[in-house]
């Protein structure tokens, strides 16, 4: 019998702990597939964040280091400088990469650190139970913005990939989603490019992936995808925002 679909060697057999309708699982799978397809599993050191995806070392079959909240990029920098021959990626949420770890993200980008950051943005703090994130939308109700995010006092969502395009050392910046089969295919293409940028030693590569959190948004999985499509997408720049000069992009 011909096998038409198998699990990827990039992921373990351990069942995900993620909530129904959460897209972390899809993103994990894309990364696992790429590690396998690009023959990277044994040459990779992944850095796990603090947050819902803080246990992702249980799923990826490469070596993993668990960082402190916000410090994944610094940990990855330390590891990459120690082992430049290794493929190093960070997996981070919006709080990790765009709030508590913002200085680390920007500085690693500025240094052109040859690592890849995968930034999963769901506009909310999932692990701690639905508090406001740096990417929460204006008006969005969370447990720490119970009357909705008020721009006058709580400011605006930070579109981190858009900001990163302004930094010379960030040579590949993309912002994608995994809300449809086509979007998932596109996300994989983008991730592959980001990985290749690191393998080619070009600089910092960063992929933002819009993601869902039905549990903390208080909606069902289908509604969550609709919320992502109708509410989130208009607020964040999407697509390949910056590509290396070799692809006709701006000189990095």
């Amino acid at each position: 019998m011909k096998a038409i679909f198998t699990k990827t060697a990039g992921l373990s057999d351990r069942p995900f702990h993620y909530c129904p309708g959460c897209t972390h699982g899809i993103i994990h799978r894309l990364i696992g597939e790429l590690l396998e397809e690009m023959n990277l599993i044994e040459h990779t050191i992944g850095v796990a964040p603090v947050g819902c995806s803080g246990f992702c070392e249980n799923y990826f079959t490469c070596d993993m280091i668990g960082a402190a909240h916000g410090r994944a990029v610094a940990v990855a920098t330390g590891a990459k400088r120690a082992r430049p021959d290794r493929f190093i990626f960070t997996y981070q949420g919006d709080g990790d990469g765009a709030s508590i770890g913002l200085a680390e993200t920007m500085s690693a980008a500025a240094r052109g650190e040859k690592i890849t950051s995968i930034f999963v943005n769901n506009c909310i703090y999932g692990m701690t139970g639905g508090q406001m994130a740096p990417t929460s939308l204006v008006g969005q109700k969370t447990s720490t913005s119970p009357y909705g995010r008020d721009a006058a006092t709580m400011g605006y969502p930070l579109d981190l990939p858009k900001v990163l395009t302004q930094i010379e050392g960030a040579v590949y910046v993309a912002s994608v989603s995994v809300d449809s089969p086509q979007a998932i295919k596109d996300a994989k293409k983008v991730l592959r490019k980001a990985f290749q940028v690191q393998l080619d030693g070009l600089g910092y590569s960063f992929v933002s992936i819009l993601s869902t959190c039905p549990t903390n948004w208080g909606v069902n999985p289908v509604e969550a995808l609709e919320w992502l499509q109708t509410k989130m997408k208009p607020h964040f720049a999407l697509g390949e925002l910056k590509v290396p000069a070799t692809e006709g992009g701006s000189e990095a």
Binding site: V47, A67, R71, A74, V75, G78, A82, R83, R86, E104
Partner: peptide, 26 residues
């Protein structure tokens, strides 16, 4: 070897963490 000027002592100690975790003297 490598000398890297970190953006802060917070980043520096976690760079140490990363390099130590891969098994190098740091």
């Amino acid at each position: 070897g490598t000398y890297l000027q970190a953006e802060s002592e917070i980043a520096a100690i976690y760079m140490v963490y990363g390099a130590g975790a891969v098994g190098e003297r740091v």
